[in-house]
Amino acid sequence: MIRTLFVTAAFVFFGSAVISQDNPPPAAVVAVEVTTRNLAEVSDFNGRLDANRRVALVARVSGVIENIGFVPGAIVEQDQPLFVIESDLYDAAMREAEGALRAAQAQRDLARLERDRQSELVLREAGAQARLDQAEAALATVEADVLRLEAALDRARTNLSYTVIKAPFSGRIGNSAVDEGALVGPESGALATLVQLDPIHAEFPVPTALLRTFLERVERGEVSREAAVRLTLANGTVYDAQGDIDFVDSRVNSGTDSVMLRARFANPEGRLLDGELVRVTLTTDTPEGELAIPAEAVQRDIQGAFVLVVGEGEVAEQRRITVLRNAQGFAVIGAGLSEGERVITEGVNKVRVGAVVDAAAPEG
């Protein structure tokens, strides 16, 4: 009796296993509908950021640094004093030039009086022409001295102004190459570097053929130079502002058959840095209403591209397709699919063509 029950139980267990293996549950997959999307045609290039303005600050007169008026790395305003060089000698030179000029001006005024007096005497035939000629020559000499001393005063004033090195524009100042108390002069080189980061430019080379196509589309109004460029930073972050193409070089690089383009980006927070290497994405076309599916749904074999479609009765079908291009993570479909059909994007390796699947929409 016990043996009979054991045999019966074994038959039930193994029989159930055979039935379960013959009728496995449908494969769980994720399926996405074929939709119409507006996918811009883009091309990626390596580029480098270039500050809008950059200047090396140098001393134009010699002297000791009395004060440094900035914190390295800070934002400075236009005309903000950055370095102050001792000015006592240059102030004294200016006052000396002012005194010499005043003396020369007094001599000029006296020479004019003498010239006028001699001229009056000659008109009255009471004086000699030679005395008048000498008076005119003396006046010309002192007038020349006045011009020379005016120039000397201008030079002294200019040298005095050079003792205060100001920011020529607003921007970010680099590290100071000298400390307070250092003796500097024109031969000292750059004391610091000032860059203007807002706006900032991205320069990148574009193949000539692609540039021709892009410019022709711009002329036809199919694409714009404005907001045509995006940046991807070194850590993979996509910069939130788009850039405008503001410069196309007039010369082709014969070695690479490419042309240098430049895009202008707003950078009010200074996130983009001068000289930074970036990935540049140029929008070369903006077509409308194209059938598209996620790129991961496309499979390939020796015959070409195909997808697995969830057909009638939730049965998986293989469908040959034509892929026109890939853009923004999607494959643009030229033939083989219709809007509203569902293609399998996840679980493809579990699917057998002709089998029923358990298709679910993607989360989110």
Rank of each mutant, 00 (worst) to 15 (best):
T286S: 09
A297N: 05
I200T: 09
L233I: 11
N235I: 08
R251P: 04
D244H: 07
T283F: 09
Q303C: 02
A234W: 15
N235Q: 11
V195M: 05
V278F: 02
Q299R: 13
R212P: 05
A263T: 03
T284I: 13
A202I: 08
G255C: 12
P294V: 10
P294C: 09
R212N: 13
V218D: 05
L291H: 04
D285K: 12
D240W: 15
E288T: 11
D244E: 06
N235S: 12
G289E: 14
G311R: 07
V278D: 00
H201A: 08
E203R: 14
A228Q: 02
G236Q: 09
L194N: 03
I245V: 14
R230G: 03
T232L: 02
R251W: 15
R271W: 08
L282E: 01
G236W: 06
V298K: 07
L194V: 10
P268H: 02
M260W: 14
D301Q: 10
L261G: 01
T237H: 12
P287D: 08
L215C: 01
G270T: 09
A263D: 02
D240Q: 13
D301I: 09
G255F: 15
F265W: 08
P205W: 11
I245N: 01
R271C: 00
I200S: 04
V195A: 03
V309G: 00
V307L: 06
V229Q: 02
P287Y: 06
P207H: 05
P294Y: 01
A292I: 04
A192F: 10
V310G: 00
I302W: 12
T281N: 05
R271K: 03
S224L: 06
R217L: 11
Y239T: 07
A305K: 01
E216S: 12
D249F: 10
N253F: 11
A228H: 01
V206A: 05
L273Y: 11
A241C: 03
L308F: 07
G289R: 15
V307G: 00
I302M: 11
G243H: 02
D274P: 01
V195D: 00
Q303E: 13
T281W: 04
A295T: 11
R271Q: 10
P207N: 09
A192I: 12
D274S: 01
R220M: 11
F204I: 06
R220T: 06
P205K: 07
L273G: 00
G311A: 07
R217H: 06
G221E: 12
E288P: 01
